[in-house]
Design a protein around this nucleic acid. Structure first.
Lengths: 190, 190
DNA sequence: GTCATGAAGCAAGGATTTTGCTTTAAGATG
DNA sequence: CATCTTAAAGCAAAATCCTTGCTTCATGAC
């Protein structure tokens, strides 16, 4: 039985807030469940029972951070929309904070739920861009292709080689994704 | 002062072996530092002082698992070499065990050292394939392009959407990477 | 207004992590 | 070959964290 707005929701909110505040104040390495619980005005056992351990809690908080708060901006063309979206994505996600959110989201995620959610966020944003392109009558690849060509390379480098990730890299990925042969229209789920 | 072959090396070997054995015997969720230390015939404080915590230890062990033990097979052409290498990479890395090694390697890795090593392994293997292609006189993209076009998409899906990853997906990525306009020869570090 | 239920509080017990000090072993030095 | 130096391992106590059974509370249902 779900009870949104009730005590459970207040506790969740308080705990998430405590994590964000303490992360900023004392840093990730000093975060502990008892510390978070104390700040949230809650018993440690409550946190353990609801989240299991600190990593799963951090994963939940990270996914909230990574959720886009606005739809992608409209710049009049598919190419421009993708350029801006990719640059913004890279800027946010390649930052030390962004990178640690991605890692947290992946880390405390036994069932892969949160990881899937992160990918879904990107896919939703891209779909908005593609829908606008379709309304304009522009030819466009599909979402899966853009994930492979734009999101995956950025994420791979963010996770495995977080050096030298600058806007031109995002621009080049977008350009090459759009330059590719137009056969990219058909569905290409793996 | 590094003392390879000395006591330090023996302890490292014993601890790594203990992790591998116990992971197989009792499972990841039951692994603890005291358990590993006992199996390795070592004091827990030794493990804590050398590795910091269980995640960093698991990260080190995972990187060893992910190190390729043989150079990529020679199938007579760049396309065939890449096809086989990509399929094998996907099969090994997308398996539950492979996926958990990748996650371990990424997670217990504060400085990003181990993650960089994983990427370097892939880059080295690809470079061998490319060198062979050059000897045959074949035109070929560079390593960075192959990382973007082949490795990154596979890794992204392994980490974020570990469903439906089958050999045809790897084949398609290789085909499209090689189909792309030949301007891909120039260096493209991000 | 009372009840049923899921979640939070509490507290004790057990396990893990940290830490200061001591001991050991590998390599350097004479 | 004996001795010295030093980094790492052993040991043990203390602190901290995690688990768990039971109790209490708040929410929504009847």
């Amino acid at each position: 039985m779900v009870r949104p707005g009730g005590r459970s929701a207040r506790v969740q909110e308080a705990v998430h807030t405590a994590v964000r505040e303490l992360d900023a104040e004392v840093g990730r390495s000093a975060l502990t469940v008892p510390l978070v619980a104390a700040r949230a005005g809650v018993t440690p056992s409550t946190v353990y029972r609801r989240w299991g351990d600190l990593q799963e809690l951090l994963s939940d908080v990270a996914v909230e951070h990574l959720r886009p708060d606005t739809p992608p901006e409209d710049h009049g063309s598919l190419a421009a929309d993708l350029q801006h979206w990719a640059e913004q994505f890279l800027e946010e996600t390649a930052s030390p904070a962004g990178r640690s959110y991605v890692r947290d989201a992946l880390l405390g995620d036994p069932d892969g739920d949160n990881a899937g959610r992160c990918s879904a966020y990107a896919a939703e944003q891209l779909q908005v861009v593609l829908d606008r392109a379709a309304q304009r009558g522009e030819a466009a690849p599909d979402v899966e292709t853009l994930l492979d060509r734009i999101v995956a390379p950025m994420m791979y480098r963010i996770l495995f080689r977080p050096d030298g990730l600058e806007p031109p890299y995002a621009q080049r990925l977008v350009r090459e994704a759009l330059d590719a042969p137009a056969a990219r229209q058909v569905s290409r789920r793996p």
